[in-house]
Amino acid sequence: MNVPLSILDLSPISEGSDAPTALRNTVDLARHADRWGYRRYWLAEHHFVSVASSSPAVLIGQLAAATSRIQVGAAAVQLGYTTAVAVVESFGVLDALYPGRIDLGVGRSGQRRREAVSQDPSKASSSSTSPRVWHEVDGVVVPAPFDLSAMMRNPRLRARASVLQQPEANAPDFADQVADILAMIEGTYRVGDVEVRAVPGEGAALRPWVFGSSRGQSAQVAAKFGLPFVASYHITPATALEAVEVYRENFQPSTALSEPYVVVSADVVVADDTATARHLASSFAQWVHAIRAGDGAVPYPDPESTPPLTADQLEVVRDRTATQFVGDPDEVAHRLDALQRLSGADELVITSVTHRHADRLRSHELIATRWGLG
Results as ranks from 00 to 15, higher is better:
residue 3 V to L: 07
residue 5 L to V: 14
residue 14 S to H: 01
residue 15 E to L: 14
residue 18 D to Y: 03
residue 33 A to C: 13
residue 37 G to V: 06
residue 44 A to P: 04
residue 45 E to D: 12
residue 46 H to M: 12
residue 47 H to Q: 10
residue 48 F to L: 12
residue 49 V to F: 14
residue 50 S to R: 11
residue 51 V to I: 11
residue 52 A to H: 04
residue 53 S to V: 08
residue 54 S to Q: 08
residue 59 L to C: 03
residue 59 L to T: 05
residue 66 A to L: 09
residue 66 A to F: 10
residue 68 S to F: 12
residue 68 S to T: 04
residue 72 V to S: 05
residue 74 A to Y: 08
residue 80 G to K: 02
residue 81 Y to Q: 09
residue 82 T to C: 11
residue 82 T to H: 11
residue 86 A to N: 09
residue 90 S to A: 15
residue 91 F to Y: 05
residue 92 G to A: 11
residue 96 A to D: 07
residue 96 A to R: 00
residue 97 L to D: 04
residue 98 Y to I: 02
residue 103 D to A: 02
residue 104 L to K: 00
residue 106 V to D: 02
residue 113 R to I: 15
residue 116 A to R: 01
residue 122 S to Q: 08
residue 123 K to H: 13
residue 125 S to G: 10
residue 135 H to S: 10
residue 136 E to N: 06
residue 137 V to W: 03
residue 139 G to D: 04
residue 140 V to F: 14
residue 141 V to Q: 06
residue 143 P to W: 00
residue 143 P to R: 00
residue 144 A to Y: 03
residue 145 P to M: 07
residue 149 S to P: 08
residue 155 P to N: 00
residue 160 R to P: 15
residue 161 A to P: 10
residue 161 A to Y: 04
residue 161 A to Q: 05
residue 162 S to F: 09
residue 164 L to C: 07
residue 165 Q to N: 06
residue 165 Q to I: 07
residue 166 Q to P: 05
residue 169 A to G: 10
residue 174 F to D: 01
residue 174 F to E: 00
residue 177 Q to V: 14
residue 182 L to G: 03
residue 183 A to G: 07
residue 185 I to F: 15
residue 189 Y to R: 02
residue 191 V to L: 10
residue 193 D to W: 01
residue 194 V to C: 10
residue 196 V to Q: 00
residue 200 P to N: 09
residue 206 L to K: 02
residue 210 V to I: 14
residue 212 G to A: 11
residue 213 S to C: 15
residue 213 S to N: 06
residue 218 S to L: 09
residue 219 A to T: 06
residue 223 A to G: 05
residue 223 A to T: 01
residue 229 F to W: 03
residue 231 A to F: 08
residue 233 Y to M: 11
residue 236 T to Y: 15
residue 236 T to P: 09
residue 237 P to K: 01
residue 239 T to Q: 03
residue 240 A to K: 00
residue 241 L to R: 01
residue 241 L to F: 12
residue 243 A to P: 03
residue 244 V to G: 02
residue 245 E to I: 12
residue 249 E to K: 08
residue 249 E to R: 12
residue 253 P to F: 09
residue 256 A to S: 13
residue 263 V to M: 14
residue 266 A to C: 07
residue 268 V to C: 10
residue 269 V to I: 09
residue 274 T to E: 13
residue 280 L to Y: 03
residue 283 S to F: 11
residue 284 F to G: 11
residue 292 R to P: 12
residue 293 A to P: 04
residue 299 P to M: 05
residue 303 P to D: 01
residue 306 T to E: 05
residue 315 E to D: 15
residue 319 D to L: 10
residue 321 T to F: 15
residue 322 A to M: 12
residue 322 A to D: 12
residue 324 Q to W: 08
residue 327 G to M: 07
residue 328 D to E: 11
residue 332 V to C: 13
residue 333 A to P: 12
residue 335 R to D: 09
residue 336 L to W: 08
residue 338 A to P: 14
residue 341 R to C: 15
residue 343 S to Q: 05
residue 343 S to L: 08
residue 344 G to E: 01
residue 346 D to S: 14
residue 351 T to Y: 09
residue 353 V to A: 07
residue 353 V to G: 02
residue 354 T to E: 11
residue 358 A to Q: 00
residue 359 D to S: 07
residue 359 D to P: 04
residue 360 R to M: 11
residue 360 R to H: 04
residue 362 R to V: 07
residue 362 R to D: 12
residue 366 L to Q: 00
residue 368 A to T: 00
residue 368 A to N: 01
